[in-house]
């Protein structure tokens, strides 16, 4: 899966699963500060990533994600590993 497809699918998940506004989302947007996604929301997102991209994301890697772009990068690494 190419990076653009991952990013666009990730944005769809943030809108559909977390109820975020599409216009607020950019690859640079930080979950906590910019998108008001709290720790529970991050766990929901990780579950959605695992389900929709069919990857496994260990907690210690998940904890390092702060931006949307970093989430896309992690998914990309997992898919190409």
């Amino acid at each position: 899966m190419d990076r653009a497809t991952i990013e666009s699918k990730l944005v769809d998940l943030l809108v559909d699963e977390l109820g975020l506004e599409r216009d607020d989302i950019s690859m640079e947007a930080r979950f906590e500060e910019d998108l008001d996604v709290d720790s529970l929301g991050v766990v929901e997102l990780l579950m959605a990533l695992e389900d929709n991209f069919d990857v496994k994301i260990p907690d210690e890697e998940a904890e390092k994600i702060t931006t949307v772009g970093e989430a896309a990068e992690l998914v990309s690494q997992k898919l190409n590993a």
């Binding site: 977390l18 109820g19 975020l20 506004e21 008001d36 529970l40």
Partner: peptide
């Protein structure tokens, strides 16, 4: 409420 909050 916005959907982001209502869904919780």
């Amino acid at each position: 409420l916005p959907r982001k909050e209502a869904r919780r």
